[in-house]
Each structure stands twice: as structure tokens, then as C-alpha cells.
Computed example of a mutant assay.
Amino acid sequence: MTYRLKLDPSLHAAYKNLSDTARRDLAVCLLDALADPLAHSVPYGVDDGIFRTIASGRTTGVILIGADTITLVQLNTLD
């Protein structure tokens, strides 16, 4: 199953302002998570299978896994 991505407009604006490298790193994480979110993420705090962390390079994000959607709820970068 492939999940659909949901992204709040404010997080999309933050994404657009990232460096090219950070945008690429986050995009790769999100694309991988859309195919298999549990395999391409780690627990965010307690492993509830819903809130998960994705990371690559100097970019991290927190995703919320729904029935058929993944929502990016937090974005962090060291750039």
C-alpha cells in the first residue's frame, strides 16, 4: 500500500526555505515512508506505531501515520 502525504501549508513553506540538500534529504525520507512508514522510521518517544521520526543527513521530521495517510507534523534541520 502507498500512503498519501499530508503537509500543512506552514510546514510546506518551511520546507521550501530549506537548503537544496536538506530538501532532498527530507524528500527521500518522505518518499520512503510513503511506501512503508514503519520500516523507514523510528519511534518518536513511546513506540505507539503512530508518531514516528524520519531522518537523513542533517534533517529530521516527525510523521503521524494514519489509515492511508502520512502527515508531516514537525520539521527540524541543522542547516
Rank of each mutant, 00 (worst) to 15 (best):
H40M: 08
S19R: 08
L26W: 00
V42C: 07
L64G: 01
T2A: 08
L78C: 10
P37I: 03
K16Q: 15
T59E: 02
L31F: 13
T2D: 10
Y3D: 05
D79T: 13
L30H: 02
V73F: 05
T21E: 14
D25W: 01
A13E: 15
V73M: 07
I50M: 11
D47K: 07
V28I: 15
D25E: 12
T21M: 10
G49N: 09
R23H: 01
T53P: 00
L18Y: 04
L26V: 01
Y44R: 08
T60Q: 15
D20H: 12
G61N: 04
D36T: 06
T59Q: 04
L7P: 01
A55Q: 13
G61M: 06
L5G: 00
L64A: 06
L26Q: 00
I65S: 03
A27G: 07
L34S: 00
L34K: 08
R23F: 00
L72N: 03
S19W: 06
D48Y: 09
I65T: 04
G45A: 12
I65F: 01
Q74Y: 11
S19D: 10
D25L: 05
S19A: 07
D79K: 07
K6F: 14
T59N: 03
A22G: 05
Y44H: 14
T59F: 06
V28S: 02
T69I: 11
Q74S: 11
C29K: 02
D32E: 13
D48L: 06
L30N: 00
S10P: 03
D47R: 09
V42H: 11
N17H: 15
D36W: 04
L5C: 02
M1H: 13
A27H: 09
L64Q: 09
T21K: 09
D36P: 01
S41L: 03
T69V: 14
V46P: 03
N17A: 15
M1T: 10
G66P: 05
L30R: 02
G45C: 07
P37C: 05
S56Y: 08
D20L: 13
N76A: 12
L64W: 14
P9I: 08
N17S: 14
I70R: 00
A27Y: 07
G45L: 11
L11Q: 02
K16S: 13
I70V: 14
T69Y: 05
D20K: 15
A13K: 11
V42W: 10
L38N: 04
D32L: 15
T53K: 14
L75W: 01
A55Y: 09
P43M: 07
L64R: 11
S19M: 07
P9M: 06
A35I: 15
I65L: 05
